[in-house]
Structures are given as structure tokens and as C-alpha cells.
């Protein structure tokens, strides 16, 4: 029985290994498209939150909660798209996004952490919490765009 389990686990591990490693890395141009797609969707779900948090649109706690949760997932997606292989691809990413990897990663981590706080406040239906956190998220977006994206 134990042996069967061992074989089964090893087989499953092997299968997973195949799933993640044996498949070739996506092509650089596709990686760029994918990270841009994640960014585009971040914009899509961020826009309404920004409108509501700044009082331009009536506040809708349900919509904010849904969007912030989407953002929490989306905020994790762009980063592996900045793979070394994409360095020469045409995009607005500045060379520093690759040459200052530590700083880049630090901002990306901070952005995810700030969005996670936004998500928590949004799901707790705390309008004040969302409004307080909204600026911190915007700052991490803007800070990164200043340092790592061409105009």
C-alpha cells in the first residue's frame, strides 16, 4: 500500500513537473502581451474604485468589494512577464525595470501589499478604510510608472 502511495505521489509530482517545466517558456512577445493584459485589467477595475473613492461617482460598496478582490488577484499577474527574455521587446518598460530588479520587485511587492489592504477594507465594507487606502495604492502605481515606464 505504502509503495503504491509512493509511486502515485511520485507520479503526480512528475506530472506536475511536466506541467510547469517541460512546457516551453512563453515567447517574449507573448509575455509582454500578457503582462500588458494584466495591467489593462488592473486599470479596468481600478478606475471605478478611484472614481468612487474620490467622490466623483456614488459609492457602491458591492462594486468596490468585487473590484478590489479582482485587483488583488490581478496585482500578482504582471510581474513574471518582466522576464529577462523580454528585455529587448518593444514596450514602454524602461531598461531600469530589468537593471534595477531589486527596486522593481520591491515596488511590485509593495503594490500587492497595498492592494491587499484595499481588498480587506473593501470586503469589510469600510468606505472610510477604502478611501484612506486608495491614495496609498495610487502612489505605488504612480511611483512605479515614474521610475520604470516611459511616457
Amino acid at each position: 500500500m505504502n509503495r503504491i502511495m509512493t509511486v502515485a505521489v511520485a507520479g503526480a509530482a512528475l506530472a506536475m513537473g511536466v506541467a510547469t517545466e517541460a512546457v516551453a517558456q512563453a515567447k517574449p512577445d507573448v509575455l509582454v502581451k500578457q503582462r500588458q493584459a494584466a495591467m489593462t485589467l488592473i486599470g479596468k477595475y481600478w478606475g471605478p474604485i478611484a472614481g468612487m473613492a474620490s467622490g466623483k461617482v456614488p459609492y457602491n460598496a458591492e462594486a468596490v468589494s468585487r473590484n478590489a478582490t479582482y485587483l488583488e488577484n490581478l496585482s500578482q499577474m504582471p510581474w513574471d512577464g518582466f522576464h529577462e527574455s523580454t528585455r529587448g521587446e518593444k514596450s514602454r518598460a524602461l531598461p531600469e525595470a530589468y537593471s534595477q530588479k531589486a527596486k522593481f520587485d520591491e515596488i511590485a511587492d509593495r503594490m500587492q501589499a497595498e492592494i491587499a489592504k484595499l481588498g480587506a477594507a473593501a470586503r469589510a465594507k469600510s468606505e472610510a478604510g477604502v478611501k484612506a487606502q486608495f491614495g496609498a495604492v495610487g502612489k505605488t502605481c504612480g511611483g512605479c510608472h515614474d521610475s520604470f515606464r516611459a511616457k
Partner: peptide, 17 residues
């Protein structure tokens, strides 16, 4: 100019922000 963001939700850089 009112929001620091395009209609697509793209956020401007921190300096212009």
C-alpha cells in the same frame, strides 16, 4: 487633470500625480 487617470484606469506617474 481631475483624476490623474485615463478613462481606462491607467494611473499617471507619481510626479504628475
Amino acid at each position: 487633470l481631475q483624476s490623474g487617470m485615463t478613462a481606462d484606469g491607467d494611473v499617471t506617474g507619481e510626479r504628475m500625480g
